[in-house]
Computed example of a mutant assay.
Amino acid sequence: MSATGKFTAALLAFVVLVFGSTAAQVSVSQAEEHRIAATEAAEAEHAAALARWERAVTSARQAAVPVADAARADAESAGTLAAADDVAALDAAAEALDEALGGRDLGAIAAARDELRTAHGVFLESVAVNAEDLVAANASSDQAAKDAATTAIATLRSTIAEALDAGAPLLELRSAADRLVASHTANVAAAAAAAAAAAAAAAAAEAAATDDGAGDLFPTGSTGSPGVFDPSHSLPPAPPLTIEARGDFRPGCPVIQEWDWWYPDPTGYVVVDPPYPYDIVIMEFATWSHAVKSLPCAEE
């Protein structure tokens, strides 16, 4: 090969080497750029996923807190209409939700929230049942008070069925229940007072008749005669009569002249609780003894 040919070949080899080295450098640089871009993209996706998770946890907490607040508020509003066991069960479910809200487990938060909603519904239904029992136990209340309580119970049950806020219906039921009990208590007291007044009048009339008879049988000033027996002269006065009328007490109802006797304890307290609708009559002779008889109401 001539000198010119050798030079040309060497020049071509140098050019190839230079361009090959440059291409390798470019390839390595591009690979590094791709690696950096992929790493940045992965980090960005991880950060976005964390942000989405944080937003989901915050949203779950915001949705669950009102559920716990409503349950606790209703437990307080129900007052004596709620049984202690039902309140305890609702409190336990609310505390379980509080514990779940302290963590970041979406599944645990959702499960505890749903369990509390179920417990809340059971609690409200139990309150409605207790209110129905209260209506039955206060049978002597005015019809308007009974109707108001019955309507409030129906409203609460409708609220439960539609999963609505039970705060206002529960407060209305509590108010209606208070009016129901107050009406029953007032009517029972009024009936007892009227019966006591009637018994006192009858006793006074009987005592007057006895005194008149005694004047005929044993003239005033006579000695050595036994006289007319008057227990008030030999026995201490009986304590005031306190009547607790339970069951279906219906003051003023037409009655059947068949009765059961109910006797007071030494303090004068007597519970009247026959298994039928009834009115009462107080039986008393001066201050010596007294008792109560319950007369069944006649069928209307």
Rank of each mutant, 00 (worst) to 15 (best):
A207M: 08
S175M: 00
A56H: 07
D74Y: 10
Q62F: 08
A131L: 13
A3P: 04
G121K: 11
P266L: 09
P226H: 09
Q143L: 13
F14N: 04
V228R: 10
A92H: 10
R113V: 01
L170F: 09
E258Q: 14
A195N: 03
A89R: 11
A93F: 02
S234N: 10
F7I: 11
E299G: 09
A190N: 14
E54S: 15
K293M: 13
V122Q: 05
V188I: 14
A298K: 06
C253F: 08
A149S: 06
P240T: 08
D85K: 15
P236S: 11
I280R: 01
G247V: 01
E43M: 03
A196R: 13
L217T: 13
A291D: 11
T159F: 07
A192K: 13
I153A: 09
A24S: 03
G227E: 02
A197D: 15
I280T: 07
Y269Q: 15
A214H: 02
D86P: 11
S77D: 07
S183Y: 05
A238H: 10
V255M: 09
L164K: 12
V18G: 14
T150A: 06
Q25S: 14
A286Q: 15
S21E: 10
A38C: 02
D98V: 06
A203E: 05
A208C: 00
L164G: 12
T223D: 01
C297D: 11
A111P: 00
S141D: 13
E300V: 13
P231C: 06
A182P: 03
E40F: 00
G268I: 09
P264M: 05
R117V: 08
A47S: 10
Q25H: 10
W261Q: 08
A161I: 03
Q25R: 10
V26Q: 15
E76Y: 03
E300M: 02
K6W: 09
G252E: 03
R157D: 05
S27F: 15
S232L: 10
A176N: 02
E206K: 08
